[in-house]
Structures are given as C-alpha cells and as structure tokens.
Design a protein around this nucleic acid. Structure first.
Lengths: 152, 152
DNA sequence: TTCTCTGCAAACAGTTTGCAATCCT
DNA sequence: AGGATTGCAAACTGTTTGCAGAGAA
C-alpha cells in the first residue's frame, strides 16, 4: 500500500500538487475500501473519523485532483451521486463491469472485459475511436432472486 | 404517432392516470425528438413554446409517471442531468448502445445488441438474473478525431 | 514572504415537494 | 362537490466556489 501511496505522490508532484496529510488520509480511505465504490460523502465521513476537522469541500477538491491524475475515476450507478473507484481508466486492460442488483442495491464486479469484438466492430462501422467504455448489468442477485421466488 | 399516443393513454388509464392536454404535449415533444435524448429542462422549453404556462414541476412529474409506466426511460451521459428516451426497458429486444464523443459531446446510437454471449456468461458465472444493461463507449467521433490530428 | 491548501459558508444546478388554485366530471 | 392535476415558490441534495486564514517552503 505504501508503494501505491508513493506512486500517487509522484503523480501529484508531476501535476504540481503536494501529497498533504489530508490528501494522504483521503487516499488511504479510498485504498482501504477499494471494493466499496464510496461516494464523496462516504469518503468524507470515513476521513472524519481520523481527522475530525476535514471539510467536505476538501474531499471534493481532492477527489477531483485524483481524477485528473487518473488515480481514481468515477462511476455512476444511478443513485444520484458519483462514486469512485481506485485506478484510472486509460484504454489498456484492467477493465471490469458491474452487476447492479435492483433488489438490494448490491454491486458485483465482473473482472472480465470481453468487449473487444464488439469494440472493433463499432470502431470500424461508425468510424469512432473508442477510448473507454462502461457496461452495467441490472438485475437480481442470487439472494434477491430467491426471495422473489419465495414471496408469491 | 397518434397510435402511439393512444397506447400511452391506455397505459395511463391502466395506472389510474389521465392523458391530460399537458401530458399529451409533453409526450408529443418527446416523440418529435426521439433521437435527441432530451433532458427535463429541454422538454420543458420545447413544451413551453406551445403552452407558455407549463410549469417545470409538471414536466418532472409527468416524466416520472411516464417512466413508471415504461413509456420512457432515463439514461445518464455523465453531464449531470438525466436524459430521456422513448421506450421502456423491458428485457426483450430493441436494445441499443451509445457512443459518446468526448470531443463534442455528440451521442451516436448503435442499434445492435451483441451482448447475448456476455450476458449468458455473466448469468451463469455469477448466478445473477439480468433484466437490463447499459453500455456506453467513450471516445472521439470522426470529426473530432480529424481535428485532433490537424492541431498538433 | 509567497504560494498552496484548507474550512466555512454561500452559491449553484437539477430535482422534488407543499400548497392553494384550477380543471374536469 | 370531489378528486386529479397544475403552477408557483420553497425545500432538498449533491457539488462547486469565494474568501480569508493556516501552513509549508
């Protein structure tokens, strides 16, 4: 984890920013909750536990910087707020998709890409240079599916 | 088009709503701009041309009703407001994806689905019942690609 | 000092809601 | 009359911004 923090520090320096204590706390919270897709406010609350006097604005500003530097990126699950994932979204590899359970709101990650064929088809058919994509599946997870079957 | 309006009227009645003049105007604006992905405010402005005293709240309320009845559905292109497309999103057919140009913001529709294989893989691997999906490609359209090449 | 960073409060944008007036039957 | 519908203004939510103070080099 410290390695990651160092890398982020490099990126910040490269962009003429410093890794201040506040920013490091924010980064740590994101890293410690990699799987959670935290919203800005959730990050804020978690940071606040350790640094009670952070301001929400600082969290927003830091998240914006992190985004610009491709340290994190935002996704929208349709709940009206942005959520953040560690990792930028440069074209190469590491893509994953999300399954969003309409029943309980759970979010499951799919760590496969599998869109290459479709991408290349789109690229040539529409003369469109793809730099990124976002794929969400909506439906019911195992638990919610079972509940649905029980009720009626 | 009148046929569609009648169908919507049926749906409204079934849900204990009426097709009021206001709602009909809103519906017409949506139908006349099927390809535009209008936001609530854009719908409002267009309706206002014909019925200057509509209220924005009515547009929002109507859009919500239409959504509940699967007459329209909303998409999020990441510009901070919901946009609406005619047509519900029930599992069957008619799916399409969107190409979003990072350069000019243009939105191109891809009228192919092509996700069946991926869907079935996800369904079995994660025990997740898919009811819908949403796929967006980000990148540069032909025009913006050319401009990028010229500038440097 | 000088320049970044920060907290606070105010401003914003999109959307929702309470309420009284209006419409329709 | 009675219930749905509407416009208006106010409220709300998530996010951004102006500013003056704090902090670091």
């Amino acid at each position: 984890m410290n390695k990651i923090i160092c890398e982020v520090e490099q990126k910040l320096r490269a962009g003429d920013y410093k890794l201040t204590p506040r920013r490091e706390h924010i980064l740590r919270v994101i890293l410690q909750n990699k799987d959670k897709h935290l919203s800005a406010e959730e990050v804020y609350n978690l940071v606040k536990r350790r640094v009670p006097d952070v301001g929400l604005a600082t969290v927003y500003r830091t998240l914006e910087i992190f985004q610009d530097l491709d340290v994190i990126h935002s996704i929208d699950f349709g709940d009206g707020r942005k959520r953040y994932e560690f990792g930028g979204e440069p074209g190469e590899g590491h893509h994953h998709h999300h399954l969003i359970c309409t029943g309980c709101g759970k979010i499951i990650e799919v760590n496969e890409d599998l869109l290459e064929e479709l991408e290349s088809r789109v690229t040539s058919a529409y003369d469109f240079t793809i730099t990124d994509h976002e794929l969400k599946f909506f439906g019911y997870c195992r638990d919610c599916k079972q509940q649905k079957n029980k009720q009626p």
